[in-house]
Structure formats: C-alpha cells, structure tokens
Design a binder for these strands. Sequence first.
DNA 1: GTCTATAAAATGATAGAC
DNA 2: GTCTATCATTTTATAGAC
Lengths: 186, 186
Amino acid sequence: MREPGVKVKDRILETASRLFYDQGYNQTGINQIIEEADIARASLYHHYPSKTDLLLAYLDRTHELWFKELEAFMLPIHGPKERLLALFDFRTKRQLRLKYKGCHFSKIVAEACEDEGVFDRVRAHKERFRQYIYDLVVQADHRKLLDNEMLTDTLFLLLEGGIALGAMYRGPDYAEKAKRIAMSFL
Amino acid sequence: MREPGVKVKDRILETASRLFYDQGYNQTGINQIIEEADIARASLYHHYPSKTDLLLAYLDRTHELWFKELEAFMLPIHGPKERLLALFDFRTKRQLRLKYKGCHFSKIVAEACEDEGVFDRVRAHKERFRQYIYDLVVQADHRKLLDNEMLTDTLFLLLEGGIALGAMYRGPDYAEKAKRIAMSFL
DNA sequence: GTCTATAAAATGATAGAC
DNA sequence: GTCTATCATTTTATAGAC
C-alpha cells in the first residue's frame, strides 16, 4: 500500500530547490522546508544529513535540469550560428519564467558559501556551458573578427553579463541588448 | 574629554560593511557586528533602528566610496579611449583586493533582499556607472564598429560579466579576457 | 548616547518511539 | 523510513538604568 520511498526524498529536494532559489539559501530555514514539503523533520535529516548536503544536491539537480532544458530548447534549432543566438533566447526565456532572479550558480556564490564542494559545482557548470558555446563557435562560419577562443569568451561574457544585469534590473533589457551585440559579431 | 559621537556610528557602519561583503548580509548577525565594532547593542539600534537601515547605509557608503576610488584611479589617465580600458583595470585591481568576491550590489540582490530601497540603490549605482562609460564613449574616437549606445552596452556587459565570472572562478581571468576583447572594438 | 539585561522567535540538528 | 518532542544557539529587537 505504501508508495515507494523515493517520493519523500524528491519532495524535499524539489521544495528546497524552489525556496533556495526564490528566497535565498541562507534565508531558507529547515523549518520552512519540512513544512512546505509536508514531511517530518527527521525525514529530512535522514535523507540529507546536513543543510549543506541538501545544498549540494540542489546544485547537482539544477545543473542536470539546466542542460536537459537547454537540449530540449535547441532541438528545433538548426545551424551553429542560429544555435549560438538561441542561447541568448534560452536564457532570457528562462529568466522570464524565474522572474529575473539571476543565475542559480552565481547566486549561491554570492551568498558567501565558502564550501569547496559548492565552488566545484559552480565551476563545473560554467565550464560545461563555455564548452557548449565553443563547440558551436568552431562549427559556425562566423566573420572571423575574433578567433574561436575569443569569440567564445565574448559570447560567454555577454551572456553572463546580461543575466547579472537582468537580476539587478529585474528585467530582460540587457540580455536582449547582449543578443543584438552578439549578432553583429557572428 | 569625550570624543565626538560620530565615531561610534562610523565604527558600526565600517564593521558592518566589511562583514556584509566578506561573509554576506544574511550570514552576518547583529551580535557579530557589535562585538567586532566594540560597541553596545543598544548603540547600534540607536543609530540604525533596524538591520535594513544598516543595509541601506552600507549601500550608500559603498556607492560613494566606489566612485571616489574610481575618480582617484582615473586621475593620472588621459584620453577617453585609455580611460575606457582603464575601467577594466580599475575593477580587476579592486577585485584582487577584495579577493574576487564580486560586485557589492549584485551580491546583495543575489541574497534575495526584496526591499525596494535596496533595488533603488543598486539600479542607481549601475545606471551611474553606465553613464560614466557612455560619456567616455562619446568623447572617444573609436572605430565605429558599433554606435555609441551599443558600444557602451558592450563595454558595460563585458565589465559586469567579467566581475560575475571572476566571483565564480575566484580569479581575474575573465575580467582580463574582457579587457582584451574590448581593446579590439575601440 | 551608551550601557546591561532580556525578550520572543527562529536557527540547525538530535533522540528515541513506532 | 517516518514520526514527535526537544536541544542548545543564534537571530533581531526592546526596556530601562546611567
């Protein structure tokens, strides 16, 4: 009659993820998580021995979902140049849904979590994204105003800058400007 | 025999500013501030009725010092083009001193302070910085690859992106790359 | 204006029953 | 594996003496 045990664990992580992002990791207490996930206090500590463990699981989950969402977004888009520009749309669209609260990973770093496991995950995420950009740049028949590495970094910086400013202005303006600028180099 | 009363108030704000930036606003308790500033609990609440008031004062102080420091840095640098590139050096040098913890203003927004006074100050700071860039762009005899507005936004986005990535990587690499990219447009 | 003492609530985490 | 009850700290903020 009992549902499989995974359900509680998932509910914990889903609830924590939402709260960590929406109101901040440090502003989210264990009490609120167990209340909104509707589970017992000790169940949380059974699955995640400490709040830091829950944080690391949150980053892993976010990383996985992020690239899964990206792959789905890219499916109907063909051509490396079109895909490079679609990266801007992907992030702008995502930020609209997230109400412009910024990048999950940069947010956590900004909350001053000095845990090394946190930094490892943040860097791994950004490194993989930069590699994703680079692979498209290599395939793209771009104007060669910049070499492949430099063009990759330009797009990467424009994307990250656009999201960062989007979080401060709570809007898409700079992400959209970033795309228009990128178009002039491609 | 008594020193002027401003001293205590200043010590509170200086200590709070250091802690808010270094370990985060939400992770800094009133207790730690009064201990490290070596003042009484009620003295803090006399000068700053709530922690939020202290936060707003912190943002105002940071804003003032930021531009004062910028002006001093720019003094020996002549020519708008040179000054535009010096903006990258200014922020990279500053971040080195601050141990790459990122922009004060983007950090506070990332900590999910939904206070409107916070957003007002963050936007005002960034808006003034963008205007500073724009004024130099107008004076600069640049290559006209982009119009003045677009070049301003490009430099702005590269600068903000470089700092954001610098915080995640805890190093100057992307800020330096951003400068090299900027050089190719000017 | 500065102090000490304290309040009331929330924090992360644990013990032990079932 | 999930539960309730509870722990010791820490949180922001206030009261009232000097």
